[in-house]
Design a binder for these strands. Structure first.
Lengths: 197, 197, 197, 197
DNA sequence: AATGAATGAGGGTTCATTCAT
DNA sequence: TATGAATGAACCCTCATTCAT
């Protein structure tokens, strides 16, 4: 007897992840998912309550882990402002380890309750702290449009780091360089803004 | 006879655009598109060869126009390196004028031959020139990963400018500010890179 | 060309009626209904919005006609109390002419919005007037339980007249006899009740 | 060991009764029945041969008891014609004690071998004796249609007494009153019929 | 006795496309 | 050009029953 008996739940999760990534939640065919996992559609329902439940099972554990990780990072950040790069690295590392699940949430969740996850993350989680940091640095309220755009750029930076297929070595180096880029740009921008007055 | 005959083709294009934007190409229902345009599904095929053809008709004219515009901008850029902001403004203005069509290509084209338009645009159209500019500025080859990431960030900046719902006035101001940000960041980054050696 | 072109809507209504009567709304198979009508399940949806709509189309026209007929009968009854048998005959005649539709409503409507039609008819339409008649005849409030039971018996009488497969000739004769039965029983019962006091 | 071991068979019978009453035999879900009884669908088959067997187990003991009771009542009736009300009371009492099982047979048995139980009971069990009693009373053959209808009315009377939720006190009183109703009606009807000749 | 995964057929419904009229 | 009925496959899901464990 094998020491690694084929776990059908795992097979379904793998197959589902593959199809959801390839076609999105709505267009992914449960039939195909099941066929690829080697069982009938009827059998599927012994393992998951439905298509939604399969998607949730793929994504929920990661969301929980992400929330925990993010709280730690935020706490760290507030207690010691010099830990920026290190914290970014922690976040990125987590995201890379769960890049598929993030992709599911970002690009393949239409039709699920997770629809709009990315927009919500940016707008409700990241934006408030970003605006605050900008305001503090500038010493006065910064144009929200500007903050929002730079935040989106930052987010896109992360996306590329996560999905660019880089080694952790490369990621580390790139983050350092991109921090130089962002901070220099940021400081110069604030300088310019303050001149306006 | 009316001087403004109801143009059924236009009605279908409008209805199609709306549905494709709302649900994506694959999930958009041709039935619904036709119903909203006020005709039957059968009649549709007198005007378009099929669902794909409708999508293409929405998007092709803009692609042609975009190519023409982009060639002009690139020629300008190469002949006079100081026209950056102005050229960006030209591009963004065009994109805002056709934001729906770009959205169709970027976010709603799955299942069509335009799938991957955005990635292709970035990688095959923008990237080569970007790499060249970076290399020239640095005086030596710059890490392609770095270039790619910054390019993605720049692209995201454009996306926000296009879809942020700003007036041209605001766009103009934001572009100026963001150019300050990017150029300062860029110069500082090159400085740092060159130190490494 | 036939003067009686096969009307597919009619074929579906007939086939649907047959299946609904045989298996009830929920267990009736739309596939079977369509196959018996000679078309595919897909084609069905060109004619009806769904299973519910087919059922409603079978039953709604009759309900409207029944309401109209019943209002006339009630008006007649109130203006001339001697028209009892005649009015019963009108009602029964209508019911016999639409016996299938009544059967659909009474016995095959589980799972539709018409569920409980019979109970509602008895309780909300017939009962109030029945109680009133009994009270008036008795000269004092009659036990609602008694009224309800006799009403149910009367209703069952109608059911048998409708579904017993009798000719109108026979129905007429039976109604006359049963009126004798009911009225004699009723009078004797009231007599007995009034003695109790 | 407990003196009241959880009897799984009873749990299944209870759960089955509930579901059959609520949805009818065919629409009742064996899964739900098992879940409510606290075991798996597989385990069910250790206790019953199948869905049909569960239904039969609910209903068969009552049918046997009913047959025995009815034979006694009939024998009594034939030996002493004055025991009418008393016998009715015996029957109704039995029926009320097993109202759920009767409901199963009357309204929830579609798809089982008990389908048509009610019609069969009326037609094959009650009708012959009813016709005989009528004929004897009238002194000549009475129109079977008339007998059948009055029998159905009588049966409906029982149904209301059984399912009306009355106390035995109330049932007793109602039976007395309804016997007055029926007998008076019956006698008057026979009188009328005999006049015809 | 009990588990629960698996079967295989069937449920109602939607789809893009075709085509006789 | 327009109609709208028809196709035939696909959609997700539920079912009673079986069976290796």
């Amino acid at each position: 007897m094998s020491r690694f008996p084929p776990n059908i739940r795992e097979l379904l999760l793998d197959s589902g992840k593959e199809q959801f990534l390839a076609h999105g939640f709505e267009k992914a065919s449960l039939r195909t998912i099941c066929k690829n996992a080697g069982l009938t559609t009827g059998a599927f329902y012994s393992h998951f309550a439905g298509k939604d439940a399969l998607f949730a099972a793929l994504v929920d554990p990661m969301i929980i882990g992400f929330r925990r990780m993010y709280q730690t990072v935020i706490a760290q950040e507030l207690s010691d402002l010099t830990t920026g790069v290190e914290n970014e690295l922690t976040s990125i590392t987590y995201a890379i380890a769960h890049k598929d699940e993030f992709r599911l949430l970002f690009d393949c969740s239409k039709g699920t309750k997770y629809e709009g996850f990315k927009e919500n993350l940016i707008h409700s989680v990241f934006y408030p702290s970003y605006q605050e940091v900008f305001d503090r640095y500038a010493g006065r309220p910064v144009d929200p449009a500007l903050v929002r755009i730079i935040l989106h750029m930052k987010f896109e930076e992360y996306m590329e780091l996560i999905y660019g297929g880089y080694t952790m070595e490369e990621v580390k180096k790139l983050i350092t360089q991109l921090t130089v880029f962002s901070e220099a740009g940021f400081r110069r921008l604030l300088h310019e803004i303050n001149k306006e007055i």
